[in-house]
Design a protein around this nucleic acid. Structure first.
Lengths: 192, 192
DNA sequence: GAGTTTACATACAGGCTGCATGTTTTAAAT
DNA sequence: ATTTAAAACATGCAGCCTGTATGTAAACTC
């Protein structure tokens, strides 16, 4: 019998290691924040050494970026899936619902809205989650009668996206979601 | 003749020292960010020692908090002064203008909108700049016909405040302010 | 003007980051 | 199959930073 079948290809070895590091880091970054989480603690949680971390990522911020990218991708996926529920109707309502559901995953708001911009910078952060959320919102806004177009529409989408972000952050911080849902409902009713 | 009149009261001594530290820290935090600025660099710029810093502030975050509080107070003052310009008319328009002007001070957007929430936490940050901006905005929204009230109005104010913040951040990052001004104009025209 | 308190300076301990250098595992070559 | 190369990890080290403990000088109290 061979030795416990420890033989893995380099590719899978790397992928598994990266996944373990990202998972451990995501937990700790979400719980304690980026600055308060040290790489020794991360590799302890992942049961590896710091050597592995610095082999797969440029630095601590590189690992954080991988965590944030995964998180943003998850949000984008949820929104795209949720937006399909609205059958031909107003795309804003199901998009709103899907966004709040996706952002209610514990730790996600902190990662994407607080530590992300601080560690990676707002510009990089905008690139990372320029995915489904903004696109869905922009499409919904464009469908409004008399809506702006071009760069004005883009600006409108971004500022309203920020409004959604702040609401998600407050809800993640313990606030009741109802007032925010009411506020958006009122807002969009006025825009229509 | 007495020795160059170095005699200052303890009170003024402390105030001057705090002011020097806050000024030096504000410059460096604004330029390089909180995490990338060390206390040795700050005290070097202020031409004192780290002992003075840790005598007047609990820790590095305490100094940062003092910087942020001063910055938020400056913004609040500008908005209150600017809001008076609108003579009985729509309070939203001059408030918007005053806010963007105040937030265009170099480094301010980063301090208040990026590093502030990351270092002090969103909850603390909300307390600090709960000053004039939100109040002015809420008053303007409340004056709209059919506007929500109570907690719904508060939520609406907060999410629109976030929209302003994001616009200010993008403008501070080099974007043209015109699309954002257009977006807000369009938005408020719809709400009226 | 002696003693106490406040304001600041200096010195030190601990932890963290990033790199440099080893060791093991996989792939390639012959 | 053995050797060689390269990738994947582990270990050890140097430098920096933070916060505190200790020391000195200036200011207030009486």
């Amino acid at each position: 019998m061979q030795e416990k079948s420890l033989r893995r290809s380099n590719e899978t070895r790397s992928q598994e290691m990266r996944a373990r590091l990202i998972a451990a880091a995501r937990t700790l970054f979400a719980e304690k924040g980026y600055a308060e989480t040290g790489t020794p603690e991360i590799v302890r949680a992942a049961d590896v050494t710091r050597g592995a971390l610095y082999h797969h990522f440029d630095d601590k911020a590189g690992l954080f970026r991988a965590v944030v990218e995964a998180e943003a991708a998850a949000v984008a996926g949820s929104i795209e899936a949720g937006a399909l529920n609205g059958e031909g109707g107003d795309p804003l309502e199901p998009g709103t619902r899907a966004f709040f559901a996706a952002m209610s995953v514990p730790g996600r708001a902190r990662l994407l809205l607080i530590d992300g911009p601080a560690v990676l910078g707002p510009a990089e952060m905008d690139k990372i989650d320029a995915g489904a959320g903004l696109a869905t919102l922009r499409a919904g806004l464009a469908s409004l009668p008399g809506a702006p177009a071009g760069e004005d529409l883009a600006a409108l989408s971004r500022i309203l996206s920020a409004a959604f972000d702040r609401a998600a952050l407050h809800v993640a911080g313990g606030a009741s979601p109802d007032p925010y849902l009411n506020a958006f409902t009122w807002l969009f009713s006025r825009l229509r």
